[in-house]
């Protein structure tokens, strides 16, 4: 039965991610599986620092495909995302070829004939040779397929979002001078968003939607275990419990998973075996990035530590 195979394949994916150091739930594995089978892009949402970008990286490692990353920002346009003509090279070539011009035009009479002759060379300046491929075009042209990460798509403009639609639904793009370029192998596309702006319906419709939240206690423990070598079990448990408790507080920015890992590494470097007040107070700046938050947490420190133990 193919459907049980699907379940197996999803479990396989999960294991694969795990051996690559990316610990995840079944829903993430299911999303990746479906994205491959249905050839659909995945829109990954969630608070910052839960491993949205990391997911794309882990997928590329797992599938052995190159990761092509496009970081979005306000003002990003086609020439930076898709392709650009190498103006400099084109100009340089025209300069160099000026000498060749008389050779080419030898034996022509009158302007019409010369134009006619020149027309034969028209295309050479707008050929692929002068095309500078940017991430999107590169992803389409990758022979064996690729993992395309369009990072923080909510930071881009509306125009760019609309422009993505063609690529995401048909995996092809149009270059006026050359024609339509289709994907050699359909790339695997991840879009990430922090929801700093509402993303359009049209884009959502074309994607599978995956929401990643902060991991549960047990999952986060496993993440720390796999990412930070040489951490003692007591320290790991206390640290994760502490972080989870801090996340429940009213903070300006709650610590992300990446910050948990950073903190764990810091503590391992300091040869800590368990959390104590002085230690936490000194290293609090690793997980909290606002002074308000730090002062708030340090006031609650004894209570939080007691909880974590």
């Amino acid at each position: 039965m193919p459907q049980t195979q699907a379940i197996d394949a999803i479990a396989q994916l999960q294991l694969g991610f795990e051996s690559g150091g990316y610990i995840c739930d079944t829903d993430i594995a299911t999303a990746v599986y479906l994205a491959r089978e249905l050839e659909k892009p995945v829109l990954v949402e969630g608070p910052p620092g839960v491993g949205k970008t990391e997911l794309a990286r882990a997928t590329s490692t797992l599938l052995g495909l190159p990761l092509i990353r496009l970081q979005c920002y306000e003002g990003l346009d086609e020439s930076k995302a898709l392709y650009e003509w190498k103006y400099g090279k084109q100009l340089l070539y025209t300069q160099i070829l000026r000498e060749k011009l008389s050779e080419v035009l030898e034996g022509t009479h009158g302007l019409d004939q010369a134009m006619e002759r020149l027309h034969q060379y028209d295309d050479s300046f707008f050929s692929e040779r002068f095309l500078e491929p940017r991430p999107l075009l590169r992803a389409l042209r990758e022979q064996a397929g690729s993992v395309l990460l369009i990072d923080e798509v909510d930071k881009s403009d509306h125009e760019f979002e609309a422009f993505l639609l063609e690529i995401l639904s048909d995996y092809q793009i149009s270059i006026p001078e050359i024609g339509t370029v289709g994907a050699v192998t359909t790339p695997m596309v991840f879009l990430t968003s922090n929801n700093s702006r509402e993303i359009g319906e049209a884009l959502r419709r074309r994607c599978l939607h995956l929401h990643i939240d902060f991991p549960e206690l047990e999952l986060e423990r496993r993440i720390v275990q796999s990412r930070v070598s040489g951490i003692s079990k007591t320290l790991r448990d206390q640290l994760v419990a502490f972080i989870q408790a801090v996340r429940n507080m009213e903070l300006r920015k709650v610590p992300a998973v990446s910050e948990t890992i950073d903190w764990a590494r810091t503590l391992v470097l300091l040869h800590a075996d368990s959390l104590d007040q002085a230690l936490v107070r000194q290293t609090l700046s690793v997980i909290l990035k606002h002074q308000d938050d730090i002062s708030l947490v340090s006031r609650e420190l004894p209570k939080l530590l007691a909880q974590a133990r």
Binding site: Q3, A6, I7, L34, V42, E45, H209
Partner: peptide, 23 residues
Amino acid sequence: REVGVTHRPVLKNALGMTLAKTG
């Protein structure tokens, strides 16, 4: 069609991803 109905959490994820697109 891909995942079938046998495994409930996977079914739920699969449908959720394809049908519900915002939080």
